[in-house]
């Protein structure tokens, strides 16, 4: 891209954007990070009186923290595994097989995105109420599973379609059965993109708050749900701060791996851009 609007000398526009965005986006997170490693920070001191890891010990000693970590991880693993198990074969079918209603069914996954999300969750909760799924682990699994479908089908479909058909035919030609072709050629070729989809779905489930809060709370307490109750009822600020840092770990991993996928144009086009 040639610089057509912005001069090549000193990029003042960019510097102003960078400064403002740093202040608005990075600064609040730095504050949270600072709180997490603070033993004492009393008003009105600008910097904490005492740094330390005291509240890490205290937070990690809490049973509710550990139980919600394990709930969150169990949920995220269950939902991601289920989602992969049902969506990847479907994605392959959409990409490579022909069957009646293929296009219509493919676009049916958009239906959930034509409505305001929380309204839809309330409508689903109405169904769950009759099925006694409110407040149960599997109720939360189901509602989060629905949230992952679009991503876990559309991204892998694109990945499978990007695999050169001739590559698969060449494998058939040297003697591989159709299943062997899928296992040795198609899957490794589509692998990185599918891995990104699975990672995004895992992280998305891990942070999913609204469904878990509406359907699961208070019986099923995930980390974000625990965080809400910390914010609402916990006078010790550091608990929330430590939990925030803990909570951010999966996102950080996703940030490292999924950055390329997110920055690529196809990702934004997936959102209709």
């Amino acid at each position: 891209m040639a610089a057509t609007l912005v001069s090549r000398k000193t990029d003042w526009t960019g510097i102003i954007f960078a400064a403002v965005l740093t202040l608005v986006i990075v600064f609040p997170l730095v504050v949270v990070g600072t709180w997490a490693f603070t033993n004492v920070w009393r008003y009105p001191s600008v910097i904490p009186q005492e740094f330390g890891l005291r509240f890490w010990n205290q937070t990690l000693a809490r049973a509710d923290v550990w139980s919600s970590i394990s709930t969150s991880l169990t949920l995220a693993f269950t939902v991601t595994a289920l989602s992969a198990a049902i969506c990847l074969p479907a994605a392959y079918a959409f990409a490579r097989l022909d069957f009646p209603g293929r296009n219509l069914l493919f676009f049916s996954f958009l239906a959930g995105h034509a409505f305001p999300k929380f309204g839809l969750l309330v409508a689903i909760a109405g169904i769950f109420l009759q099925l006694n799924l409110i407040g149960t682990f599997w109720g939360v699994v189901l509602i989060q599973l629905v949230g992952t479908l679009l991503f876990m089908i559309w991204i892998p479909v694109a990945a499978f379609q990007a695999v050169d058909r001739r590559m698969e035919e060449a494998a058939r030609d040297v003697g591989a059965s159709p299943f062997r072709v899928f296992w040795s050629i198609t899957l490794p070729q589509a692998g990185p993109t599918i891995a990104a989809a699975i990672l995004l779905s895992f992280v998305g489930t891990f942070y999913e708050t609204e469904g878990a809060w509406l359907i699961g709370a208070p019986q099923v307490r995930t980390l974000p749900v625990l965080m809400i109750s910390f914010i609402n009822n916990q006078p010790v600020i550091q608990y929330g701060a430590v939990l925030s840092v803990l909570l951010w770990v999966p996102s950080f991993i996703a940030l490292l791996f999924a950055r390329k996928v997110v920055n690529s144009g196809s990702f934004a086009r997936g959102f209709g851009g």
Binding site: R166, M167, E169, A171, R172, D173, V174, G175, Q189
Partner: peptide
Amino acid sequence: PEKRPTGMVFQSHALWT
């Protein structure tokens, strides 16, 4: 194709990258 004694060279090479 996997049971045929034929070997095909494709236009696009179709090498497994």
